[in-house]
Computed example of a mutant assay.
Amino acid sequence: MRLLALSLACLLPLASLPAAAADASVEARLTARGLKYTIDDDGDYKVILNFSEEGRTQLIYVSGGTEDVSGLSIREVFAPAANIKTDGLTAEMAMDLLRESRTKKIGAWEIAGDYLYYVIKLPDSANAQELNAAIRVAGSIADDKEIELSGDADRL
């Protein structure tokens, strides 16, 4: 019984793992640009951009972790544009998104789960200004697509 109690006590710190997994360098870069954020359940940074002229907001995430690609540390910035189930996505629309991705200088359309995202993958060495630019590009493109696919709805 004592071993079980000790084991459980050792596991308690893991309950707050996402918050503990916070990346001080991301926080510093977001703060340097005046971006307010929260950290979601899986450790991603959640930023909400306000498009006041249009009376809209857009949700953008900065991944809480990085991935190594041939020695290059990559972080993702991603913004949801549509719920595929509720907004619908036909094969023709998917082909149009692929074509559109080809015209973008940074980022591309991706599907994950039930959502369509605009995703920018950049070196984690990106400074605060570059990370801010990626957030704004992803947010603007995703919000424009949300308007196109769902009309006036501003769910994401």
Rank of each mutant, 00 (worst) to 15 (best):
D96F: 07
L11R: 07
M95I: 03
P123A: 10
K36G: 05
E53R: 06
A21W: 09
V77Y: 09
R29M: 14
L4R: 10
N50C: 02
V69C: 14
V77G: 02
E100N: 11
L17C: 10
R75N: 10
K36P: 00
N132T: 12
G151I: 12
D87N: 03
N127G: 15
V119E: 13
T57W: 00
S125A: 15
K104G: 08
D41Q: 04
A142R: 03
I120S: 08
E148L: 12
P80W: 03
A108S: 14
Q129M: 10
I74D: 13
D42Y: 02
A19N: 10
N50G: 03
G113Y: 01
I147P: 01
R33L: 09
L17K: 11
D44T: 00
L14M: 15
V69S: 14
A108C: 14
S63K: 09
L14Q: 15
L14R: 13
A20Q: 15
I74A: 15
K105L: 10
G34R: 01
S16N: 14
I48Q: 03
D42M: 05
A91Y: 14
V62I: 15
K121G: 05
E53H: 07
A153Y: 00
Y115A: 12
A138E: 05
G139F: 00
G64R: 02
L8E: 11
A112K: 11
A15E: 13
A138P: 07
R2M: 09
L149Q: 06
T31F: 08
E110C: 13
D143P: 00
T57C: 04
V77R: 10
S63G: 11
L12K: 09
E148D: 15
D144L: 04
M93Y: 07
A20D: 12
S101A: 12
E100H: 09
Q58E: 03
A153L: 14
R99K: 06
Y117H: 14
D96S: 13
A28L: 12
A19H: 09
I84R: 06
G71E: 08
D152P: 01
Q58R: 00
M1V: 11
Y37K: 06
F78D: 05
A126K: 03
M1L: 11
D23R: 08
R75W: 15
T86S: 12
L72G: 15
G151D: 06
I48E: 07
